[in-house]
Each structure stands twice: as C-alpha cells, then as structure tokens.
Design a protein around this nucleic acid. Sequence first.
DNA 1: TTGATTGTTCGATAATCATAGAACAACCAA
DNA 2: TTGGTTGTTCTATGATTATCGAACAATCAA
Lengths: 99, 99
Amino acid sequence: MKAYEHPEIESIPLEKAMQALSDPCRVSIVRALLASKELACNELPVGVAKATLSHHMGVLREAGLIETRVEGTKCLNCLRLETFRERFPGLIELVSECT
Amino acid sequence: MKAYEHPEIESIPLEKAMQALSDPCRVSIVRALLASKELACNELPVGVAKATLSHHMGVLREAGLIETRVEGTKCLNCLRLETFRERFPGLIELVSECT
DNA sequence: TTGATTGTTCGATAATCATAGAACAACCAA
DNA sequence: TTGGTTGTTCTATGATTATCGAACAATCAA
C-alpha cells in the first residue's frame, strides 16, 4: 500500500500535538483507539469522506499520536501510547477522561 | 476600558482548550503568566502588533485560560489556575514543563 | 484641556485547514 | 483475470485563522 512515516517523538513541538487534538473528529479517533487498541481506517467511528479521514490520520501520525502498519489491503492503526506518554505526560489521559 | 467576559469553565470543550494552546505565541503568554502571576498586555513577551495580541488574549479568555481585570488604562491578566486545572487536569503543567 | 498611554474594534489580506469528489494503486477472492 | 475492498493523492472550495494598520475610546498626568 504505502510506506508510512512516523516522526521521532522528540521532534514534535507541543503546539503540534495540541493542534492535532483540536478537532472533534480526531479526538474521536484517539478515543476509539484507546478503547480498541488497533483499528483499520474503515472501522473508525467518523462521519466524513474517506479522503477527509485519510487527511486526519495523516495529521495524527505527524503529531506522533498514531502508528500505522499495512496488512493486506487494510492499514491498521494504533496509538503510540508509551512513546507519546513519555513526551507529553498526561495528555492522552486528558483526552480519555475529559468529556 | 471594557467589560470582559469570562466563560463558565464547564462549558468549554476540550477541543477549544487544545486549539488555544496550538499557537506558539499563546503558549508563550501562558508561560509568562505562570512565571509572573499577573501581567498587563504590554508586559507580555510577544513579537506581534497590539491588534494581534488583543486577538490572542481573546482566544485565551474564551478558552477559559485567563482572566482579565481593568485597572486604569491597563488591563491585568492572570491565569485561571484553579478553575482550569479542575476542568483539564494536568494541561497547564504540560505547557509549563514540556519544551 | 492637552498629550501620552493602553488596549479594542474594524477592515483587509494572506495563510492554513477541513471537506469531498474523482482518479488511482495495491491487494485479495472468486 | 475480473471485480470488490481499502486507502492515498490530486484538485478544488469554503471556512477559519493570524496578521496588521488605522481609527477609536478610556484613563491618567501635567
């Protein structure tokens, strides 16, 4: 399918992480991944066109939040939990717990 | 000078708080207020025109991050520390501690 | 009252961003 | 090989955002 790039977590500025989490659609995606560990794009609970979803996944990937691996025709996404927590402690918990 | 509006903290969605903290200029302002408790606009360490600064202060106020009170010709700003911490635990600490 | 200081508001502009249709590429199953 | 599924990329569009100059309002000091 494609070779996904996953940035070094240390290279990600705080503002970029904040920016990624400033969209309701992307926040939903993060929450879904928290609940399900690993999901293909078409299993994500979003109401947008697939081109739009692809864009959002790119933003989350660039912000260090998710990791994507290819499996057949699907691409499976999960959170970079450990890594992201080390760089931005408490942020994922905030997304998880704050209504 | 003006009657400033400070929203109910409970009415602020997570995304709005994130959005407010996705701009380097606004993050600098929050950090300066963390260090100095209370500052007038013209004491803030930003390199933008005053119209722009006024805009950024409005965004921070709308996001529940700061409180503004008038004193003479100046308006003095401080963080809504307690309140904001209760609503979004750990977020201010993140801004404070994450480079 | 005059002038200086402080910050807001208006209007304009350039940049960024969210959105989606269409075409495409990779893969799998029949 | 043919068709269906999956997701990306391109292109376009409308919305939001950051920026600033200029005009304005409020206050204070001389």
